[in-house]
Every structure is written in structure tokens, then in C-alpha cells.
Design a protein around this nucleic acid. Structure first.
Length: 492
RNA sequence: GGCGGCAUAGCCAAGUGGCUAAGGCAGAGGACUGCAAAUCCUUCAUCCUCGGUUCAACUCCGAGUGCCGCCUCCA
């Protein structure tokens, strides 16, 4: 089955066909590195991480480029404020970016180009635009002449009259048209600057993406991604620059992720409802944050509330418990390339058909414009179905469990990264018996209390045994009686 | 003012021109338990309003209402 993607330019769902059969050229707008990354950045990163991984899962080789805007007004302002060099600021936040993204289990892109490291490409690109008559020089600065590019507005679906009606742009008398945008900006005294055929200065915002995508991926990209809020003016301007210069379609498929709201309001610094990734990671695991993002369709707006996160945490715990159950059932059997045929040979056709059904459904959702929410739904749908099927396997239960475990993990860990295999293995040790052997003093004490309580229970002294259980609960230790004994876990 | 999007159970959230409208959380009932917890099983919607197209619409079209985003830097 082919993959269908929603393309912002044509405003339609279309079948995905890359230019080269097996290689995908993908460019996603990264961040301007003047501050910490927030939940909105996380959403874009997670969405395109999964999209990229899914293409790879389908056998494509993805050449993914994510840029850093490491010079612009905001960075310069911040540098002035902190009395530092602009590049000091940007490199600090680039480091922070990678810290956050690594924690969120974002697979590294193929390239992370920085604007400041491609000044010569940018200048060359601007020169090309001037030569072709799409750009003009004013006082050492260069502007793109929007009226020269007939298709300007095709991505954001606007025209000049509509845009002038909005009239919230400051009119610069030097410009031929108020919508002309800056390609090269002259430096003010003391600002970071580079030599150019015009005044000493720095590139405008939009030009870096055109120049760097061209440098790494060529004239036409298969996919260009970014947040919905970048459609205008950023992506509109990129199209104008790239198509004006190269005379070819810039992008085959434009993909835009929806924005994040907080308590139904737009998340923004001015409203103060702003969540940084590092701040969120103190309260919620990376798995839950990813699960939050992926349980909505990537193009829809998504609303963040702490209550919802709690709800999702419980929901995700259900999946984790299922995986732990499989882990126990499979005993020591681990499916790998060497034993896969042997294991499959032992399983009934019925079980294999159910797994196949699940995978078919999961993939059907993913192939339909990366519907992760639907795909996750199918994960839940098949948990009881597969549980039952495994129990029917009689002597081969452990092989059945190993098989299902490996199939589920391919999606949950490998693709969506909402369940961490290490976490499943690690949490196994919250068993009281193991805890008693543990060197931790607290755990030894809990083990002792559990032992005392077991004796009280044997004497039917429920009043005292409940006192112990309730007392532990008050300090966040939850006891659970099972046939094998009492387990405990610590409530976060 | 211009452009675009959304409206599905108590809440969150997929989806489809006709077949049982996924799934999660919460709730209800049951099993298990000394009682709990956890777990398992069962159960819980006719899809904003009004028109139209159609043999058939929640799904397509039109109007209305409501919410949201973009039009200025923004993932």
C-alpha cells in the first residue's frame, strides 16, 4: 500500500511518490536558537520524527535536514541583554536543543546546518535572484520583489489586496511593495556581520532555508515540513525565492503540523502559559509527552492540560503493563533474526493471523497521512485479542508471547517511541522478593513491613494489617496483594 | 476586513456514502480479594442546527451558529 500525505499547497490528500524511488529528501524548519525549546517545538520534532521513521520503516532512505537559525534579531537582542557574543548565545541553545531532543528520543537528522556556516551559499543565492531580476538593492540591503513572482501567495492562499487589508505591516518607503521582504540586512554598529557585495550585514530569515535546502538537497525537495504558523510568511517566501531562482517546483509535498494550545489558549510567552521541554520533563516522562503528541492527529490543534497528561499517563501505563505481561509470559525467549522462523513455525495460524490483522490495521492508519492516533487505538484494540490468542497456544505460549512482544515493540518502541524497552525491563524489580534482596535500605524496610503484615494477615488481624497498608499509602507506597505475595510500587 | 481549520459519548479522541461510529480516561455491573488495590470480563454515543443531493449521509453540497488559527516574530 502506498502512503498518502496531506499537502498544504494543493490542500489535498495525495499519494506519496518521491522523485527517486528509494530516497526521500526532507527538510524541516528547525528553531531560532535564542531561548529554550518549548512544547510547540517538541510537537514539530516528534511529528516529523515519527514521519521520518515511518518512511524508513517502509524501506526508504531519508535524507533529513533540520536547520538552525543562529543569527537574527532575537539572538542579537538577547546577546546585547546578556552582554555576550551572538554566537555564544546561539551555540548555548543549540546544545540545549540537542539535550531536549535526545531526551525526547528524537532520532538525529542527517544534517543540522546553521545559517552562519552557509553565508557564502546564501550570498550566491541572493546574487542569483538579483541577476534574474527578482531582487533589488536599497542602501546596501537586498529585498525580494514580491510582485515579480506571479505565484506569490499560492501556499497561504492570499493575494495582495487581501493582505493589504490586514495592514498591520509597517510601511517602509524604500520598498517597491510593502510585502517585499529582506534577503540581506545591513548591520548596525556593533552587530555581528559578514562581508557581502552589498553592505556588511547578515542574511534575512527566509533566505537561509532556501539556500541551505538547495545546498543539501537540490532544487526540488520531496517533503518540506514545519509548524502551521510558518506557512505565512516564511514558507511562502521560501517558495518565491527558490522557484524564482531555480525555475523548478521547490517542494513536492508541504506538510504542516498543528499548534499547541494550553487550556484552550494559544501557548505564547506573552500569555505566560509557556512550557519548556526541560520543565515538562521534570513532571512527565518523555514517553508520556510523546504519547500526548501522538494521540492527536498531527495537523489538528492540540490542547495541553495537566489533567489530560495525567489521564494519558494512566492510559500509557495500560500498554506498559501489557508489555510487561508479555515479557513475563515469554520467559527468556527473545525473537531475533536467527530464531524467527523456528518461533513462527511453532505458532498456530490463528495467532499469526491476529498479529497480521493488527499490523494491517496499524499500517493502514499510518499510511493514511500518518494517523498515529488511530494507530495507537489499534494497539489497544488488539491487546485483549492477542492476550487471548497467546493463552490458546498451550505449550508454545512463551514463543507466542515473544512473537507478539517483538511485533508490538517494533511499533511502540521503534516507531512511536512511546514505550521504552529498558523501562519495561527495569520496572520488573518492583517485586517485593527482589526488593528484599536489594541493598536499598528503604526497600528492605518496606520488605520487612510486608513480612510483618503477612503474619498479621495470617492471624486475621486485619485491623493492624490495614494500618500498615494505609500508612504506607500515605507516604506514597502502594501495596498490592496477589496470590504470589505482596507487591509494592512507589507512586510518583 | 481577508484566508484557512474545526464542531463525534461526562471528558479526550479516531473514522466511514450503506455493514457493530476505533480507542483512552472517568462511570456502572460482575469475577477475584478478609476488605482494598491491581487485573480480567461486561456495559456506556446516531455524530452542532437547518436545508439540499442520493435508493441511502454523521460522512458530499449550501446556509446558519459556535470555537480556533494565520494575516507582525513564532514549531
Amino acid at each position: 500500500m502506498s502512503i498518502k500525505v496531506f499537502d498544504t499547497l494543493s490542500n489535498r490528500m495525495t499519494e506519496f511518490v518521491p522523485q527517486n524511488e528509494k530516497e526521500i529528501k526532507m527538510y524541516v524548519c528547525g528553531v531560532t536558537v535564542y531561548d529554550e525549546c518549548h512544547l510547540g517545538h517538541a510537537r514539530a520534532a516528534i511529528c516529523f520524527d515519527v514521519i521520518r521513521k515511518y518512511f524508513e520503516f517502509k524501506g526508504y532512505n531519508v535524507n533529513m535536514v533540520v536547520n538552525f537559525t543562529d543569527v537574527d534579531d532575537k539572538i542579537i537582542n538577547r546577546a546585547k541583554l546578556e552582554k555576550k557574543d551572538a554566537l555564544e548565545i546561539s551555540s548555548k541553545y543549540i546544545d540545549r536543543y540537542f539535550e531536549d531532543m535526545d531526551k525526547l528520543r528524537i532520532k538525529r537528522a542527517t544534517h543540522y546546518p546553521k545559517a552562519t556556516e552557509h553565508i557564502s551559499h546564501i550570498i550566491k543565492f541572493i546574487e542569483g535572484l538579483i541577476e534574474k531580476g527578482f531582487a533589488y538593492v536599497v542602501d546596501g540591503e537586498v529585498y525580494f520583489e514580491v510582485s515579480k513572482f506571479d505565484e506569490y501567495g499560492k501556499l497561504s492562499k492570499r493575494n495582495f489586496e487581501d493582505m493589504l487589508a490586514g495592514a498591520r505591516i509597517a510601511v517602509d518607503e524604500r520598498l517597491k511593495n510593502p510585502h517585499d521582504f529582506c534577503l540581506w540586512k545591513a548591520a548596525k554598529p556593533g552587530e555581528i556581520k559578514w562581508k557581502s557585495p552589498w553592505a556588511e550585514g547578515r542574511p534575512g530569515w527566509h533566505i537561509e532555508c532556501s539556500a541551505m535546502s538547495n545546498h543539501y538537497l537540490g532544487d526540488t525537495l520531496d517533503i518540506h515540513g514545519g509548524g502551521l504558523d510558518l506557512i505565512f510568511p516564511h514558507h511562502e517566501n521560501e517558495i518565491a525565492q527558490s522557484e524564482a531562482r531555480n525555475g523548478k517546483p521547490f517542494v513536492k509535498y508541504w506538510m504542516h503540523n498543528g499548534l499547541v494550545n494550553v487550556n484552550s489558549e494559544k501557548m505564547s510567552k506573552s500569555l505566560g502559559n509557556f512550557f519548556t521541554i526541560s520543565g515538562l520533563l521534570e513532571k512527565f516522562s518523555a514517553d508520556v509527552i510523546r504519547y500526548f503528541i501522538l494521540s492527536n492527529h498531527y495537523r489538528s490543534p492540540i490542547n495541553f492540560t495537566p489533567e489530560k497528561m495525567e489521564e494519558l499517563r494512566k492510559s500509557l501505563a495500560t500498554i506498559v503493563k501489557f508489555m510487561k505481561k508479555l515479557m513475563a509470559l515469554r520467559e527468556e525467549v527473545v525473537l531475533d533474526a536467527a530464531n524467527e522462523d523456528m518461533i513462527k513455525g511453532r505458532l498456530s495460524e490463528g495467532l499469526k493471523a491476529k498479529v497480521c490483522e493488527f499490523e494491517g490495521k496499524f499500517n493502514e492508519y499510518m499510511e493514511s497521512d500518518f494517523n498515529t492516533a488511530g494507530a495507537i487505538g489499534s494497539v489497544f484494540q488488539y491487546m485483549p485479542v492477542l492476550s487471548e490468542a497467546i493463552l490458546k497456544e498451550n505449550d508454545n505460549k512463551k514463543y507466542a508471547a515473544a512473537y507478539v512482544y517483538s511485533r508490538y515493540m517494533a511499533y511502540l518502541d521503534g516507531l512511536l517511541a512511546i514505550v521504552d524497552e529498558d523501562c519495561i525491563k527495569g520496572e520488573k524489580s518492583s517485586n517485593s522478593e527482589e526488593a528484599a534482596n536489594d541493598s536499598g535500605l528503604a526497600e528492605k524496610l518496606i520488605g520487612l513491613l510486608i513480612k510483618i503484615r503477612a503474619e498479621l494477615k495470617a492471624e486475621k488481624n486485619y485491623k493492624m494489617s490495614d494500618t500498615i497498608r494505609n500508612g504506607l499509602k500515605e507516604i506514597g507506597i502502594i501495596l498490592e496483594d496477589t496470590k504470589q505475595g505482596t507487591n509494592f510500587h512507589i507512586e510518583k
